[in-house]
Design a protein around this nucleic acid. Sequence first.
RNA 1: GGCUCACUAGCUCAAUUGGCAGAGCAGCUGACUCUUAAUCAGCGGGUUCUAGGUUCAAGUCCUAGGUGAGUCACCA
Length: 543
Amino acid sequence: MPNSSVPGQSSAGHTCAHGQKYEGMRMSESIHPIFEPANLSDQERSRLHNLEALVAAGIEPYPARVKRTHTVADARALFERGDAGEDAVTVTGRIKRMRIMGKMSFADLEDGTGSIQLVLRKDSLPANFYDDVWKKLIDLGDFVGATGPLVVTKTGELSVDVREVQFLSKALKPMPDKWHGVRDQEKRYRRRYVDLLANPPVRDIFRTRAVIVRALRDFLDGEGFLEVETPILQPLYGGAAARPFVTHHNQLHQDLYLRISFELYLKRLIVGGYDRVYEIGRDFRNEGVSFKHNPEFTQLEFYEAYADYQDVMRRTEEMVAHVARQVTGGTTITWQGHTVDLTPPWRRLPLREAILEATDIDYEAYPDAESLAAEMRRLGHDPDPRSNWGKLVDSLMAKHVEPHLIQPTFLTDYPLDVSPLAKGSPDDPRLVERFEGFMVGMEICNAFSELNDPIDQLRRFIDEAYRARHGDEEAHPVDEDYIEALSYGMPPTGGFGMGVDRLTMILTDTDTIREVILFPHLRTIREGGEEEEGAGEDVPSAQ
RNA sequence: GGCUCACUAGCUCAAUUGGCAGAGCAGCUGACUCUUAAUCAGCGGGUUCUAGGUUCAAGUCCUAGGUGAGUCACCA
């Protein structure tokens, strides 16, 4: 069926096949309750009525093809160059605002490149189109193509002086408030498309996120790193202290884990002979949700042979500074009122000193969980009695040090107990060569000189397995194949992991991870009472 | 999981001590050929998150539940 691109001239009263299609949706026996009039608001009914009226007038409300000559940005550029002349351009987009003034109207049309004003005059349009279609049947939020020469109005606004309108897509839902947009956080996250179409600054956040990811790749590619992809579904998880999601492969009759890190696979690649590898991808951790935790999040990890954690520290600050320059043009940023200077070099501070300074506790004087917990209680802290020594140290850091690290800081030289994959310090058997990077009170990265001694690594795994048997749900399982890989020899290697979402929070001045994830995890809304659960019969849950 | 707070028209928000549930935008009708949050006149629009309870009377008080936010616990 030919699409009538000049709707005003179509023969009225002719009903095409589409007419019956849409009328059917209004009948009580319609196939789904979504479009039943009883379930619609007055505004939705009005829009559905306008859709039917368009079809009755012979206008295809969802045509298959569009004839656009210029994006909004292109049209503006054309005019700026003075090349516009009196030739017509065709721009396409969503109608965001309308000002109808009798026989003349203004409308703001927006596409992905920007917004431009349309001028519609009754005299300049096909017969009856202005009164019968434009004023009556087109709603805010509809997509149209507008054709006409570029003009400047009396008030200086570049506009398309519209001679022809092509209808492109009908919006059946009313648009959010044109001034306030959508504010309700739950609505914004559950229906992100509404958030994006109504709140332009939100679109900018995800454009910036793309710039950040591209800048990370630029930087690492430029340093000779190879981008790789490793399994998300893994028979054995590892590389971080976290509980995994469990799933099941039906045909193989095998439980699989969604990865919690890329670490053990990327180091296998170092064994295989790639000296510099990285991966940017999704990790999944089955734990609490908060302003800085989403169950799935984007991680960058890189591994570099013949480097140690000091080398990685330097690379980290250079990489983050590079990204900041790509995003903001400089290395000083503002986050929630704090001025943060990302210019290398960043402050380095041994973890032991940081905790001593903040809490007056020198954890090395309390080498076991019992004595450290006792000292913590003596100073008024409330340690979790189930915690082992490493977790106590970590909790001291997380509670008393991390929140105060606004400027970028590397905490260095972590206890071996909490670092089962990191190489021991040659100077102190209780420490490993590890650092974590912090800024704006948040951890953003974690790195170490990788443990490449297969016998030492096996010993660490066995310790972890012991902890797992004694209730530590985040302890590492023994990965025998990884030990096998190390047994072929892995060069001294520096490894690094960073939360890309958190970096994005910092560079977009947002205070919750949900603002930088397009579709953050939210609980499914349960309707009223309890319904029987259909799923889950052959999906074992994590124990 | 504990505690605190929130949920009202399509959207943004009001509603006094428990006393007729309102406004702006959006919608509908009309006027208007240079507006840009257009303006002006008129009209319609509500399961006040859900289910109970107290009361002559509940958006408001009580109980339970849902969802979200914050916080604590947990979580590199």
